[in-house]
């Protein structure tokens, strides 16, 4: 997975469309689509993880890559 493919994962089955993440996203990367949160502007996402932290339904997860300084591209987790 290349660097530009790491984004928050929104579980549509858990999202109730409350809009909390959209209201709090510091870069307005999220919008409502079909009654659910959607990462409409992924290039704006700064990976702050605020959306994951505040979602009351655990519908958003932020995946991380655990690595060493010299092996940024090695997928180990």
């Amino acid at each position: 997975m290349s660097d530009d493919q790491w984004f928050p994962i929104i579980h549509k089955d858990r999202c109730v469309g409350c809009g909390a993440c959209i209201a709090q996203c510091p870069t307005q990367a999220l919008e409502q689509r079909g009654g659910k949160a959607a990462l409409v502007w992924p290039e704006r996402c700064i990976y702050c993880a605020d959306c994951e932290t505040l979602c009351p339904h655990n519908a958003i997860e932020i995946p991380y890559l655990v690595c060493l300084p010299t092996s940024h591209n090695r997928k180990v987790s």
Partner: peptide, 9 residues
């Protein structure tokens, strides 16, 4: 364990 990443959850 190489894969698509690990989440806090």
């Amino acid at each position: 364990l190489s894969g698509p990443g690990v989440t806090r959850a």
